[in-house]
Amino acid sequence: MADGTGDERPDDQMGDEAREALAAELSELLGDAVVESHVEAGQNLWLRVDIEQWHAATTALRDAGFAYFGFLSAIDWTDAPEGRYEDTEFDAAGAGEDDDASSATAEETVRRGGGETRFQLLAQLHSPARHAAVLIKADVPEADGAPASVPSIIDIFSGADWHEREAHEMFGLVFNGHPNLEHIYLPTEFEGHPLRKDFPLLARAVKPWPGVVDIEEIPPELEAQLEAEVMAEFEASGAGA
C-alpha cells in the first residue's frame, strides 16, 4: 500500500518486485520509445512512450505477450474553467478544512509517468500468460490549438476501433489510419467534444444544484405546530398505553 505501512497488500498477486522487473524488461524491449516508466507500489505499472512510436511500441508489446486489449482513452489535463459549478456551503466547508496540502499539489505528482501536454493518450494491455497488465501513455502535442493527429492501432488490436472512435468524439483526437472515424454515441449534428474540459454543461450553468434548492426552511411556529400534531396523533393511537 502507498501509505508507507511497509507491508504489501496480501492480495497483490503480482508484487512490486515483479512489477519493477517487468518495467525494466519492457523498457529494454521498447528501447528509446519509452520516455518514462513509473511503478506505483502495490498498484500498477505505467509506461510513457513517444507518440511517434505509439504504433511500434504497441506492436512490440503485443508480440511480447501483451495481446489482450484492455481499453484506450485519453485525458484532458487542463482545469475546467467552471470547476464543479458549485459554491455550496458543503464545498466551502470541505475546502477550508485541510486544503493546504492538496491545493498546492504540483502537476507532476498527479501524472503517473510524467508528461506536460494538454492531451494524453492512455491504453491498457493485459498479458494473460504472465498475469500482468501495463498502462501505456503518450503525450499528444498540440498544433494550432488542436491536438496533432496520432497513429491508429486498429491494425494491431481490432478492438481499438470503437475506443478510438470514442476518443475522437469525446476529445477531438484524430487517429491516422482509422477507416471510419465517425460519431459513435452522439447524434451526427452534435457539436463539440464533451470530455474536453472547456466543454460546458449548460444545465449546470443555468440551473442551481437541485439537491440544495430543495431544502426549505420551515418557520419555527409551523414546526412547533407540526410537532404537536404528530404527538397528538401518536398519543391518540394508544402508543402511550
Binding site: 454515441y185 452522439l186 452534435f190 464533451p194 454543461l201 444545465a203 449546470r204 440551473k207 437541485p210
Partner: peptide, 13 residues
C-alpha cells in the same frame, strides 16, 4: 425529468 442525469449533455430532461 432527467433524474440523476439532469445536467447531462445528451439526455432529454
Amino acid at each position: 425529468c432527467g433524474g440523476p442525469y439532469w445536467d447531462s449533455y445528451s439526455v432529454t430532461k
